[in-house]
Design a protein around this nucleic acid. Sequence first.
DNA 1: GCCAACGTTGGC
DNA 2: GCCAACGTTGGC
Length: 152
Amino acid sequence: MKYWLVKTEPDECSIDTIADTGSEGIAWDGVRNYQARNFLREMAKGDQVFIYHSSCAKVGIVGLAEVTEEAFVDPLQFEPESAYFDPKSMPENPRWSAVRLQFVRKFKQPLALKELKTLPAMAENPLVQKGSRLSVVPFQASEYQAVLALVD
DNA sequence: GCCAACGTTGGC
DNA sequence: GCCAACGTTGGC
């Protein structure tokens, strides 16, 4: 099993939005960065995924989700009306992938970015590196456990 | 709202 | 292939 973190703006899709989708889960689409896309493609069913709120008042990890469907073609890239439309992506060779995530739980207290930066176990994680804009972040098992140890 | 850091585009 | 210009991300 592997571990990940995905960023989301709570105004667009918060942990509560994900929770509301229940057992159906939510398509994690709209990723338009190659490095992040490649990580999406590495995800396997059952992988654990931290949900992170960015660009908001309380930046940090707010809960946990799980991969329920491995990478599939992101349909939004072919929809001209979508903000995620990509005219250069060809149906015979789609550029962008999505996965399906299902809500696992919301932490009673979010783990703030500020706190994450103080954890020795997280020192090497891309999330806390200066200037990192990666929206899908791989986690080592040790990093995953260090975070879980601080939430309930 | 500001701005640093980063990724992408496109002219040459 | 270089690199300037531009657009975006995301913390603060």
